[in-house]
Amino acid sequence: MKIAMINGSPKLGKNSSSILLRILETLIPDEHEIAHYALNKKDLTPEQYSELCRMDTLVLAFPLYVDGIPSHLFRMLVGLEEYLKAERQNDIYVYVMVNNGFFEGKQNHIAIDIIKNWCLRSGLHFGHAIGQGAGEMMEYIEKVPLGHGPLKNLGSAMTTLANHIHSHSSGESILISPNFPRFAWRFAATHTFWNAKAKKNGLKKKDILRRL
């Protein structure tokens, strides 16, 4: 089986989507052929669009943007739809991993529905999706063994996803939050992520809270 893993994150360098794809790849049997595509530097070429039309499976990993999908991923999907209508010859299954900065994984359900509708328009099969909460945590806990500690829910969900990909089958979407107290995530996100990012960019805490 030919599998395309598509990183839809706009973030350069390490990002939660790339971490999730790397973890998923370790769960997929070696008998499958995997190709990687990233959308954070430039648009796909016509040759790459044609390659995707010859895949058996597309795996989309991306962050949630205003309850939807990033604009550059949307642009890619619109372009790919036209190529699929002209060049696709076999059944293609689509699998999705969405992560967001909220604690609750259920926040991803609209983005998943967007991909489902795109599959209908493009004549593809929607296979399965994971919606993960507290996605920004991945960069800080990626060394934690999958299926343990705060990654217990994610481990179970990704094993199910990998099984669906291997068997080319479908299943209900899984929306998960980390195995980590919500109040602790809020504290950590505020002090180790948002405030730190603000300071790095020359801002103070009051600048984040200032209303325009």
Rank of each mutant, 00 (worst) to 15 (best):
A4S: 09
S9E: 05
L12A: 14
N15S: 15
S16M: 09
S17D: 10
L21T: 01
L27D: 01
L27R: 09
I28F: 03
P29E: 09
P29T: 00
E31A: 12
E33I: 13
I34W: 03
I34Y: 05
I34A: 02
L39M: 05
K41M: 15
K42F: 00
D43K: 13
Y49V: 02
S50V: 00
E51S: 12
E51P: 01
R54T: 10
V59M: 05
F62K: 06
F62S: 15
V66Q: 13
S71F: 09
H72A: 04
H72D: 01
L73V: 05
M76S: 02
V78P: 00
L84A: 06
K85D: 11
E87W: 10
R88G: 02
N90R: 15
N90M: 06
D91A: 12
N100E: 04
G101W: 04
G101I: 01
F102V: 02
F102Y: 14
F103M: 02
G105R: 05
I110E: 06
A111W: 04
K116Y: 10
N117F: 01
N117D: 14
W118G: 10
C119H: 01
L120S: 13
L124Q: 07
L124V: 11
H125M: 02
H125G: 00
H125Y: 07
I130D: 03
Q132A: 15
M137L: 15
M138L: 15
E139M: 11
I141M: 04
I141S: 02
I141K: 06
E142M: 07
G147C: 10
P150F: 01
K152E: 11
N153S: 13
T160H: 08
L161S: 00
L161Q: 02
L161E: 00
H164R: 12
H164I: 04
I165S: 01
I165H: 03
S167L: 12
S173Q: 07
S173P: 13
I174T: 08
P178R: 07
N179R: 11
R182C: 12
R182D: 03
W185S: 05
A188P: 00
A188V: 06
T190N: 11
H191L: 07
F193C: 04
A196W: 13
A196M: 14
A196V: 13
K197D: 00
K197Y: 09
A198I: 00
A198K: 06
K200A: 15
N201Y: 13
N201Q: 15
L203H: 07
L203R: 15
K206N: 09
K206Y: 03
D207K: 12
I208L: 15
L209Q: 04
